[in-house]
Measured scan of single mutants.
Amino acid sequence: MQVTWGNVTVTFSNPEEAKKYAEKVARKLGGQVELHNGQFRIK
């Protein structure tokens, strides 16, 4: 499962870890987490 924002992509084998990481990054950037085609995207 991947977490992407800007031109950065981070890949996780565990979807739960990916979700936690995406939420943490979104909080830092003041963005929203979207699940899109099996990727968490931060907008």
Rank of each mutant, 00 (worst) to 15 (best):
W5T: 03
S13K: 14
M1F: 15
S13Q: 13
Q39Y: 07
S13D: 13
Q32T: 15
A22E: 00
K20Y: 08
L29Y: 11
K24Q: 13
E16K: 10
V33S: 02
E23C: 06
H36Y: 13
Q39A: 12
T11M: 10
V8N: 09
A22L: 04
W5S: 03
G30E: 04
G6M: 08
A22I: 03
A18Q: 01
A22S: 03
S13N: 13
A26C: 05
R41H: 15
F40L: 12
H36D: 09
R41T: 15
K24L: 13
Q39C: 08
K28G: 06
G38F: 04
V33N: 00
T9F: 05
V33T: 03
T11H: 13
F40H: 03
I42A: 00
A18I: 02
F40P: 01
N7P: 08
G30N: 11
A26H: 02
A26F: 02
F40Y: 15
E34F: 10
E17F: 09
N37S: 05
V33I: 10
A18R: 00
A22C: 03
P15M: 15
T9Y: 05
V10Q: 05
G38Y: 04
K20A: 14
M1R: 09
G31M: 09
I42W: 02
V10M: 12
S13A: 13
K28L: 14
Y21P: 00
T9G: 02
G30T: 03
R27T: 10
K24C: 15
W5A: 03
V33K: 01
F40D: 02
L35F: 15
G31T: 06
N37H: 07
E17S: 12
W5C: 11
G38V: 02
E16L: 13
K19E: 07
T9Q: 05
G30K: 08
N14A: 07
S13M: 11
V10L: 12
T9A: 05
P15C: 11
M1P: 06
F40S: 00
Q2G: 07
N14T: 13
E34T: 08
V10R: 10
A26N: 02
K20M: 11
F12V: 02
K28S: 09
K28N: 08
R27N: 11
F40R: 01
N7V: 08
I42H: 02
Q39R: 08
A22V: 03
N14V: 06
W5E: 01
Q39H: 14
N7H: 12
F12D: 00
K19G: 06
E23Y: 14
E16P: 03
E23P: 00
L29A: 05
K24F: 15
